[in-house]
Design a protein around this nucleic acid. Structure first.
Length: 172
DNA sequence: CCCTGATTCGC
DNA sequence: GCGAATCAGG
């Protein structure tokens, strides 16, 4: 994959909108998050928002005898807060979505414990793939909780998906 | 362990 | 210029 003008433009857009490098990579397709980050740097459009920082990194180049322990923290700049729920926020949207906004209220999660409300692109092999909502709706998302290694769902949804015969009779 | 971005450096 | 490997942190 090469960086066409269109792809670079999309990269710029998504990056400025606050999407993570991996999310951008997922939407661009054909590139890794590293590629995205590398490109972002080359385009000199890092920072994304406010002040960058003063890393003062002296890494690589034969790291053997290091004695640098300078810890000078610069004041963190005010962040552009994007609506998010959970650690890995969902900031994914394609074109349309100015409609219904979430009220950041976990109220509707009475039956389904806690959903990380992940978008399809951010599911990994360890995230619960239990779908919630109408696939045709903007609100569609996946549970996203830790699914461990034993299956496609988290412990909660595993029980629903793989109900013991006895329990299933009652549920009917 | 999952994830984030930042940097370096061989290609 | 590109991006994997690596680093540093949450």
């Amino acid at each position: 994959m090469n960086w066409t003008d269109e792809r670079v433009e999309l990269l710029r857009k998504l990056w400025s909108e606050g999407l993570s490098a991996s999310q951008i990579a997922a939407q661009l397709g054909g590139v890794s998050r590293n590629a995205v980050i590398g490109k972002v740097h080359r385009l000199k459009l890092s920072s994304r928002g406010r002040a960058a920082a003063a890393p003062t990194r002296t890494k690589k180049t034969s790291q053997g005898t290091s004695s640098t322990k300078s810890v000078v923290r610069a004041a963190s700049a005010p962040r552009h807060v994007t609506a998010s729920i959970g650690a890995t926020a969902l900031q994914t949207q394609f074109e349309a979505e100015p409609v219904a906004r979430q009220y950041l209220r976990p109220v509707e999660d009475v039956v389904v414990p806690i959903s990380r409300r992940l978008q399809l692109v951010q599911l990994t092999e360890r995230t619960c793939k239990w779908p919630n909502g109408d696939p045709l709706s903007e609100d569609f998302h996946f549970c996203g909780n830790d699914a461990g290694e034993s299956g496609p769902y988290c412990t909660y949804h595993s029980r629903i998906a793989f109900q013991p015969a006895a329990e299933r009779r009652r549920a009917r």
